[in-house]
């Protein structure tokens, strides 16, 4: 689909904070089934947003604000054209050997229960791609998708034990399960552009990618139960949520904050897109 996308986050503090640092992974990279045009990230009050690239190849903006600061707005917007590539990632520069994506970490550690579940899910399927589809299906069936994102998702084990979680929590469970099967896997954060499909999940969405030999990296969305389609706008990837989080912030002076995030997707702007092409 072609669309003009605008993401906006508004944060207001109960009491002004004395300073704030944040990093934003809100810039999608283009690859074969995702084209990105005229993308920009902006913050208010004005501050220098330094654009860089992290070790995983994500585009990161870092900025800092001096206080006192009582509110903050982050905007990310641009034009995208996405295709349903059955979740297969092509045309992305990979930075790491696959071993990195087998790393164990607290957020994506699979305990015995989860590992056994993952093994059982495969039945006797030998095809690597089939195996991952089975895993996604089994997780989708076993775990209830509870839209609504928390700032810090619970570790995979906890979510699996609770049999329910948000998109980012389910994605971490998938990553943990895949790694338990010795399949390299990673976390993906993004937007879901299709209205209604994700319920009131808010603008953020998350899924996982697994390395399927010999095809390569393929996306799996355990929350929705299918591979990413053209409504999945891929923002960033990492070993777990924390490495791919769309925003990480820390402020000086503890303050209660109120956050509102909105995503507007205007497929009607196709016209202007074509003009620009």
């Amino acid at each position: 689909m072609r669309a003009s996308v605008q993401f906006q986050l508004q944060v207001s503090f109960a009491e002004p904070v004395r300073g704030l640092n944040q990093i934003l992974r809100l810039t999608p990279r283009g690859f074969d089934s995702q084209e990105v045009r005229d993308w920009r990230v902006d913050v208010l009050p004005d501050a220098t947003c330094r654009r860089g690239e992290d070790a995983f190849g994500n585009i990161v903006h870092a900025c800092s604000h001096d206080g006192p600061l009582d509110s903050l707005t982050v905007t990310a917007e641009g034009l995208v054209e996405t295709h349903d590539g059955a979740g297969v990632l092509r045309g992305l520069n990979e930075k790491f050997p696959l071993d990195v994506f087998l790393r164990d970490a607290p957020a994506t550690h699979a305990d015995r229960e989860l590992a056994v579940f993952a093994r059982d899910a495969l039945a006797n399927e030998a095809d690597p791609l089939g195996r991952m589809h089975l895993l996604m299906g089994a997780l989708h069936k076993a775990l209830a998708f509870a839209p609504g994102e928390t700032e810090a998702p619970r570790p995979a084990n906890e979510v699996f034990a609770a049999r329910a979680g948000s998109a980012r929590e389910l994605a971490q469970v998938f990553v943990a399960a895949a790694r338990a099967l010795s399949v390299p896997a990673r976390f993906v954060s993004g937007f879901h552009l299709g209205a209604g499909e994700v319920g009131e999940a808010g603008p953020h969405h998350a899924w996982a990618e697994a390395f399927v030999d010999p095809i390569g990296w393929i996306g799996f969305d355990p929350a929705l139960g299918f591979c990413p389609r053209d409504a999945h706008l891929r923002l960033a990837t990492g070993l777990d949520f924390f490495g791919a989080a769309p925003r990480r912030a820390a402020c000086l002076g503890a303050a209660r904050e109120d956050k509102r995030a909105a995503l507007s997707v205007d497929a009607g702007r196709q016209a202007s897109w074509q003009i620009q092409q």
Binding site: A55, K95, F96, P97, D99, V100, L102, R103, D104
Partner: peptide
Amino acid sequence: ADLVLRNPAYRPEMQ
């Protein structure tokens, strides 16, 4: 490779 790349003390951020 795995001894290095899967080592908790290895920091992919530094690659």
